[in-house]
Measured scan of single mutants.
Amino acid sequence: MEVRTIKVFTTVDNINLHTQVVDMSMTYGQQFGPTYLDGADVTKIKPHNSHEGKTFYVLPNDDTLRVEAFEYYHTTDPSFLGRYMSALNHTKKWKYPQVNGLTSIKWADNNCYLATALLTLQQIELKFNPPALQDAYYRARAGEAANFCALILAYCNKTVGELGDVRETMSYLFQHANLDSCKRVLNVVCKTCGQQQTTLKGVEAVMYMGTLSYEQFKKGVQIPCTCGKQATKYLVQQESPFVMMSAPPAQYELKHGTFTCASEYTGNYQCGHYKHITSKETLYCIDGALLTKSSEYKGPITDVFYKENSYTTTIK
């Protein structure tokens, strides 16, 4: 009895394709271990004539594949690729409408935090270190965002349907971005203890939790000093293409032309909904596939993004 075979390709990165001759009487799992086709788990399936010449994702289970996976995804987590594939199996079914010149995501599976993050990423200057993220990001900007969303979920250790947080998501993504040249110098002034300067680099240099107003941050924000008295913390120097200011959701007025974009969060910790506000020729609110415009805006804002380049204080 002759062994019926077909020729397929296996890959971990969709760049390096490895030619395989597979036995049609055995499952993919018996031949390769966990195997995925377009995100779908085909591990328990036997090869079919229609699979001839198709590319299958496999887990990096030998040295060659491990090197290829690390170079593309910059992670050695053995569960990463499987999590990416199972997320992709959902995100490829989502709709990605162009809204006001940006790629958004039609609401499904509690994905409003991903839509808000995706919209924000198209408006701030950011370059990702893992080629996987950078490639998928370019495709997302062009309207094909399924891979990018699935990668975000995998890097953030999230599953489809789980509630997510924009600030946490951005923080994970910033860790995989090139923020080497970003720098922030802060000064804390206390009447009792004097003053202390701190220099922050990388992710810490672009994120701040405690106030939404970048102007206020430049002037000074009140913080408790270690001595128990009130101290003032203010920005001395900022070198970065953008800054992200966050605070627990509270009524906040966004003035046209003073910011790049913002995240609105309605609801409580267990259950809520994100919308995205962007400042173009007027203010726009993007909620999944829905767009509304207004000249002014007041609502429960939790993150505001500002364009920056270089700032030095005039406070002496």
Rank of each mutant, 00 (worst) to 15 (best):
residue 1 M to L: 15
residue 2 E to Q: 11
residue 2 E to F: 10
residue 2 E to R: 12
residue 2 E to K: 15
residue 5 T to C: 14
residue 5 T to G: 12
residue 7 K to V: 12
residue 8 V to F: 07
residue 9 F to W: 12
residue 10 T to C: 13
residue 10 T to W: 05
residue 11 T to N: 04
residue 11 T to G: 10
residue 12 V to H: 07
residue 12 V to D: 09
residue 12 V to A: 09
residue 13 D to I: 00
residue 14 N to F: 15
residue 15 I to Y: 05
residue 15 I to F: 10
residue 16 N to L: 12
residue 16 N to I: 09
residue 17 L to K: 14
residue 17 L to G: 10
residue 17 L to F: 12
residue 19 T to P: 14
residue 19 T to D: 15
residue 20 Q to T: 10
residue 20 Q to Y: 09
residue 20 Q to F: 11
residue 20 Q to L: 10
residue 20 Q to H: 13
residue 20 Q to A: 12
residue 21 V to Y: 13
residue 21 V to M: 14
residue 22 V to K: 04
residue 22 V to A: 14
residue 23 D to S: 12
residue 26 M to C: 14
residue 26 M to Y: 13
residue 26 M to R: 10
residue 27 T to Q: 11
residue 29 G to S: 11
residue 30 Q to E: 13
residue 30 Q to C: 13
residue 32 F to V: 08
residue 32 F to W: 11
residue 33 G to Y: 08
residue 33 G to P: 08
residue 33 G to F: 05
residue 34 P to H: 11
residue 34 P to D: 10
residue 34 P to M: 15
residue 36 Y to R: 03
residue 37 L to W: 14
residue 37 L to I: 12
residue 37 L to G: 09
residue 38 D to G: 11
residue 39 G to E: 11
residue 40 A to K: 13
residue 42 V to L: 14
residue 44 K to P: 12
residue 44 K to Y: 13
residue 44 K to L: 12
residue 45 I to G: 14
residue 46 K to W: 11
residue 47 P to H: 05
residue 48 H to L: 13
residue 48 H to D: 15
residue 51 H to E: 11
residue 54 K to M: 14
residue 55 T to S: 13
residue 56 F to I: 08
residue 57 Y to A: 07
residue 59 L to R: 10
residue 59 L to K: 11
residue 60 P to S: 08
residue 61 N to S: 14
residue 61 N to W: 12
residue 62 D to N: 14
residue 64 T to E: 12
residue 65 L to T: 12
residue 66 R to P: 08
residue 68 E to I: 04
residue 68 E to G: 05
residue 70 F to D: 09
residue 71 E to H: 10
residue 72 Y to L: 09
residue 73 Y to A: 05
residue 74 H to R: 13
residue 74 H to Y: 02
residue 74 H to A: 06
residue 76 T to V: 12
residue 77 D to H: 07
residue 78 P to A: 11
residue 82 G to H: 14
residue 82 G to W: 11
residue 83 R to W: 06
residue 83 R to C: 06
residue 83 R to P: 04
residue 83 R to M: 07
residue 84 Y to H: 08
residue 84 Y to C: 04
residue 84 Y to D: 06
residue 86 S to D: 13
residue 88 L to A: 00
residue 88 L to H: 03
residue 90 H to T: 12
residue 92 K to S: 11
residue 92 K to D: 05
residue 96 Y to S: 07
residue 96 Y to T: 05
residue 98 Q to R: 14
residue 98 Q to A: 10
residue 99 V to C: 08
residue 101 G to N: 10
residue 103 T to G: 02
residue 104 S to Q: 09
residue 105 I to Q: 02
residue 105 I to R: 06
residue 107 W to M: 06
residue 108 A to Y: 05
residue 108 A to F: 03
residue 109 D to A: 08
residue 110 N to M: 09
residue 110 N to I: 07
residue 110 N to A: 02
residue 111 N to C: 06
residue 112 C to W: 01
residue 113 Y to G: 02
residue 113 Y to F: 13
residue 113 Y to M: 04
residue 113 Y to C: 13
residue 114 L to F: 09
residue 115 A to C: 10
residue 116 T to R: 06
residue 116 T to S: 09
residue 116 T to Y: 06
residue 118 L to C: 07
residue 119 L to Y: 02
residue 119 L to R: 06
residue 119 L to M: 07
residue 119 L to H: 00
residue 121 L to H: 04
residue 121 L to A: 07
residue 122 Q to V: 06
residue 122 Q to W: 00
residue 122 Q to K: 05
residue 122 Q to M: 04
residue 124 I to L: 15
residue 124 I to S: 03
residue 126 L to V: 15
residue 126 L to P: 08
residue 127 K to Y: 08
residue 127 K to C: 10
residue 128 F to I: 06
residue 128 F to P: 08
residue 128 F to Q: 06
residue 130 P to R: 05
residue 132 A to H: 01
residue 133 L to I: 09
residue 134 Q to E: 09
residue 135 D to N: 10
residue 135 D to Q: 09
residue 135 D to C: 07
residue 136 A to R: 04
residue 137 Y to L: 14
residue 138 Y to R: 14
residue 138 Y to N: 13
residue 138 Y to V: 15
residue 139 R to L: 11
residue 140 A to P: 07
residue 140 A to L: 13
residue 141 R to P: 03
residue 142 A to W: 10
residue 142 A to M: 15
residue 142 A to L: 12
residue 142 A to G: 14
residue 143 G to A: 02
residue 145 A to N: 05
residue 145 A to L: 05
residue 145 A to S: 06
residue 146 A to E: 07
residue 146 A to C: 13
residue 147 N to V: 11
residue 147 N to T: 10
residue 149 C to G: 02
residue 150 A to C: 02
residue 150 A to G: 07
residue 151 L to V: 03
residue 151 L to C: 02
residue 152 I to N: 06
residue 152 I to H: 01
residue 153 L to C: 08
residue 153 L to N: 00
residue 153 L to W: 04
residue 154 A to N: 05
residue 155 Y to H: 00
residue 155 Y to S: 03
residue 156 C to D: 06
residue 157 N to R: 07
residue 160 V to E: 03
residue 161 G to A: 03
residue 162 E to H: 01
residue 162 E to V: 02
residue 162 E to D: 12
residue 164 G to W: 05
residue 164 G to N: 05
residue 168 E to W: 06
residue 169 T to F: 02
residue 169 T to H: 00
residue 169 T to K: 00
residue 170 M to R: 01
residue 171 S to E: 10
residue 172 Y to A: 15
residue 174 F to N: 00
residue 176 H to Q: 12
residue 177 A to Q: 05
residue 180 D to C: 06
residue 181 S to E: 14
residue 182 C to K: 00
residue 182 C to Y: 09
residue 183 K to N: 03
residue 184 R to Q: 05
residue 185 V to K: 08
residue 185 V to T: 11
residue 185 V to I: 12
residue 188 V to Y: 08
residue 189 V to L: 08
residue 189 V to Q: 08
residue 192 T to F: 08
residue 194 G to N: 02
residue 196 Q to W: 14
residue 197 Q to V: 09
residue 198 T to K: 12
residue 199 T to Y: 09
residue 199 T to H: 11
residue 200 L to C: 11
residue 202 G to H: 02
residue 204 E to M: 04
residue 204 E to C: 07
residue 205 A to S: 08
residue 205 A to N: 01
residue 205 A to Q: 02
residue 205 A to M: 03
residue 205 A to C: 04
residue 206 V to Y: 02
residue 207 M to R: 01
residue 208 Y to P: 01
residue 209 M to D: 04
residue 209 M to W: 15
residue 210 G to H: 00
residue 212 L to I: 01
residue 212 L to C: 08
residue 214 Y to Q: 01
residue 215 E to S: 08
residue 217 F to S: 02
residue 217 F to Y: 04
residue 217 F to A: 09
residue 217 F to C: 02
residue 218 K to V: 04
residue 219 K to H: 08
residue 219 K to W: 03
residue 221 V to K: 01
residue 221 V to I: 15
residue 221 V to H: 05
residue 222 Q to R: 10
residue 225 C to F: 04
residue 225 C to R: 03
residue 225 C to Q: 04
residue 225 C to W: 02
residue 225 C to P: 01
residue 226 T to P: 14
residue 226 T to Q: 14
residue 226 T to C: 10
residue 227 C to L: 02
residue 228 G to K: 03
residue 228 G to Y: 02
residue 228 G to D: 01
residue 228 G to C: 06
residue 229 K to A: 14
residue 231 A to H: 01
residue 231 A to N: 03
residue 231 A to C: 04
residue 232 T to V: 14
residue 233 K to S: 13
residue 234 Y to E: 02
residue 235 L to D: 02
residue 235 L to F: 06
residue 235 L to R: 01
residue 237 Q to F: 12
residue 238 Q to T: 03
residue 238 Q to V: 01
residue 238 Q to A: 02
residue 239 E to Y: 07
residue 240 S to N: 01
residue 241 P to L: 02
residue 242 F to Y: 02
residue 242 F to G: 00
residue 243 V to K: 04
residue 243 V to G: 02
residue 245 M to N: 00
residue 247 A to V: 06
residue 247 A to W: 01
residue 249 P to V: 04
residue 249 P to W: 00
residue 251 Q to Y: 12
residue 251 Q to I: 15
residue 251 Q to E: 15
residue 252 Y to R: 03
residue 252 Y to W: 11
residue 252 Y to T: 11
residue 252 Y to L: 08
residue 253 E to L: 08
residue 253 E to H: 11
residue 253 E to D: 03
residue 254 L to K: 02
residue 256 H to R: 14
residue 260 T to V: 15
residue 260 T to K: 00
residue 261 C to Y: 02
residue 262 A to I: 09
residue 264 E to K: 00
residue 264 E to P: 01
residue 265 Y to F: 13
residue 265 Y to Q: 01
residue 267 G to N: 02
residue 267 G to H: 04
residue 269 Y to V: 11
residue 270 Q to H: 12
residue 270 Q to Y: 14
residue 270 Q to P: 04
residue 271 C to V: 05
residue 271 C to P: 01
residue 272 G to W: 01
residue 272 G to V: 01
residue 272 G to H: 03
residue 274 Y to G: 01
residue 274 Y to P: 01
residue 274 Y to I: 01
residue 275 K to G: 06
residue 276 H to F: 14
residue 276 H to C: 09
residue 278 T to G: 01
residue 278 T to C: 09
residue 278 T to R: 04
residue 279 S to R: 02
residue 279 S to V: 00
residue 280 K to C: 10
residue 280 K to E: 04
residue 280 K to F: 11
residue 281 E to G: 03
residue 281 E to I: 00
residue 282 T to Q: 09
residue 284 Y to V: 10
residue 285 C to S: 07
residue 286 I to G: 01
residue 286 I to M: 00
residue 287 D to K: 02
residue 287 D to Q: 00
residue 288 G to C: 02
residue 290 L to N: 15
residue 290 L to S: 13
residue 290 L to C: 12
residue 291 L to A: 12
residue 292 T to Y: 06
residue 294 S to Q: 14
residue 295 S to T: 13
residue 297 Y to L: 10
residue 297 Y to N: 07
residue 297 Y to E: 04
residue 298 K to A: 11
residue 298 K to Y: 10
residue 299 G to Y: 00
residue 299 G to L: 03
residue 300 P to N: 12
residue 302 T to D: 00
residue 303 D to Y: 08
residue 304 V to F: 05
residue 304 V to W: 07
residue 304 V to K: 03
residue 304 V to T: 07
residue 306 Y to R: 05
residue 307 K to H: 01
residue 308 E to K: 03
residue 309 N to P: 10
residue 310 S to E: 00
residue 311 Y to T: 08
residue 311 Y to R: 00
residue 312 T to L: 13
residue 315 I to W: 15
residue 315 I to R: 15
residue 316 K to H: 15
